[in-house]
Design a protein around this nucleic acid. Sequence first.
DNA 1: CTGGGGCCGAAAATATCTTTCAGATGTGAC
DNA 2: GTCACATCTGAAAGATATTTTCGGCCCCAG
Lengths: 333, 333
Amino acid sequence: MTDDVKESFRAPAARTGGSGSGPTSGSAPAPASGSGSGSDAPPAPAALAAKVRTLAPSMTRSMQRVAEAVAGDPAGCAALTVTGLAELTGTSEATVVRTARLLGYPGYRDLRLALAGLAAQQQSGRAPSVTADIAVDDPIADVVAKLAYDEQQTLADTAAGLDTVQLGAVVAALAGARRIDIYGIGASGLVAQDLGQKLLRIGLLAHAHSDPHLAVTNAVQLRSGDVAIAITHSGSTGDVIEPLRVAFDHGATTVAITGRPDGPVTQYADHILTTSTARESELRPAAMSSRTSQLLVVDCLFTCVTQRTYETAAPALAASYEALAHRHSPRTR
Amino acid sequence: MTDDVKESFRAPAARTGGSGSGPTSGSAPAPASGSGSGSDAPPAPAALAAKVRTLAPSMTRSMQRVAEAVAGDPAGCAALTVTGLAELTGTSEATVVRTARLLGYPGYRDLRLALAGLAAQQQSGRAPSVTADIAVDDPIADVVAKLAYDEQQTLADTAAGLDTVQLGAVVAALAGARRIDIYGIGASGLVAQDLGQKLLRIGLLAHAHSDPHLAVTNAVQLRSGDVAIAITHSGSTGDVIEPLRVAFDHGATTVAITGRPDGPVTQYADHILTTSTARESELRPAAMSSRTSQLLVVDCLFTCVTQRTYETAAPALAASYEALAHRHSPRTR
DNA sequence: CTGGGGCCGAAAATATCTTTCAGATGTGAC
DNA sequence: GTCACATCTGAAAGATATTTTCGGCCCCAG
């Protein structure tokens, strides 16, 4: 109680108070209780490398050094005390602790514990996560193999880093939504459409918008009980943030699917689903892995909503199947 | 943007031998390769339960209680401080430390670290349960895990089954194409658009069509030197086959990306790229895995074409990146 | 019954982690 | 170009956790 955080953006309590159950008698000064970074991530078990990549852009230089060391050599760092790690990275203890906090742990001690776990996992079977980048002169077979591997990695990272509590909340909102709007531009626009198509198939009134103006026009119509979903890897795509803001202001439940949980888009998001960020290169643009990651999130949403509304979803799904059947020519040949 | 990827981090092992400034009780675990020279027993990695049994007879009553708790619930004990574990077992801190020593660790801290590792290993070993199909009553975490696993599987299958010769031929055709048309409907339509977007970014004149009529209208314009790509999982989507047939008849190089290499669509395809077909179920429609598979093929095409036309593709890619930069609010960090 | 040996835990001593605070650094405005 | 502001950073104080010390207690033998 005594610790009043600065509450940042959304002071108005007009929202459903449901999400933020009281923090446990906060000895733990969990910084983001309200909404900002939203999902208080459970201590990441193995999703640490992914988390480092996801959060790296929002880190300061010193913290990045620490995060890099940690991600690069979990086993080695697990053996170090906070002072040792500070010396190794040429920073101070305070910075190490700050980094640990940013990664979602109560303190360095817990980060170290997770690190030990990660090291053990890597040790037992897992190949080193370092893969060569795709080169300009790689033979085709190598390109295929590397791309497949990278995308698999992206999937694993995303799954590991996905906040199931947030996911559950979003699913609940979607299942009971009167109307669903989805915003996405460019590569994310395709993902938005994919989600829209899927939700339509199970009988939900969902629509994906790619036109920013129309999106805003539609967002104005939303109200409490509706859901608005913004999909943007960078978290700072204005054309997507704007409709979400409008939806937010009109009382809709808002969701952000983004790779930057600290980006501007999250200001207006009741729920944040974080997609993983893979390292990128010239031959492997960010759009590629972000799309893979986003699609997994979309699939999870779809599947869980279908589960939850099985009674109505199953017949709807079957009907949509049926309706398209005659579109396929009988198998000639 | 940020080019700080190189540089990475300094080697963690390079501790200067002389400066023993740290009063750390010389617990240099040195995970380095040479393991033999280490005089004292290495901290038990995972064989902790066995060690407990072995040493149990030589333990005193109190220590046995501690050892038992540790062996019985590594994860739980890893979360406890020395005081907590002492209370849990009804003993004292000193006893806990003695037990840790007896088990071969320098102190409780290290035992706890090993415990965390053990817990993580046990956790990850619990994977096989995700091979099952997704059920209506699966908890959310399971759904996420299963979906991710299935998609990973799909990727592996696709990569393994992809014909690199055909792929190379298609890449060659694309790299030199005057004009590229891509046909896809429904879920495959999004993949088609994805491919179109990507190819546009590297300066190729590509267009994805979702409207069957417009697709045919465009296909009529194609001629030798052009490329037409049809994407259809079933291989029998009439609305996609028709434009491909027209393109084929007009002399364009035609490509089919399909999960059914024996389907009608292949009649008009010069090259066939086969996508994998995963088992499907009610909660996991075919569209899901086919999309994943198709996207991998698309990514391969894109990457290989970029490689092959690097001289022109790289600047085009950079330019498209640049053009969108100002679309993102500067509010980063 | 008494003495000895070793086990055990409370509390001191030490190491480690966390927090606070003020200097350092970079950024944007004028 | 300079100033004001905000942020980052590290040193040291403050809190916890771990290790050690030391004396009491129990058990067993004589």
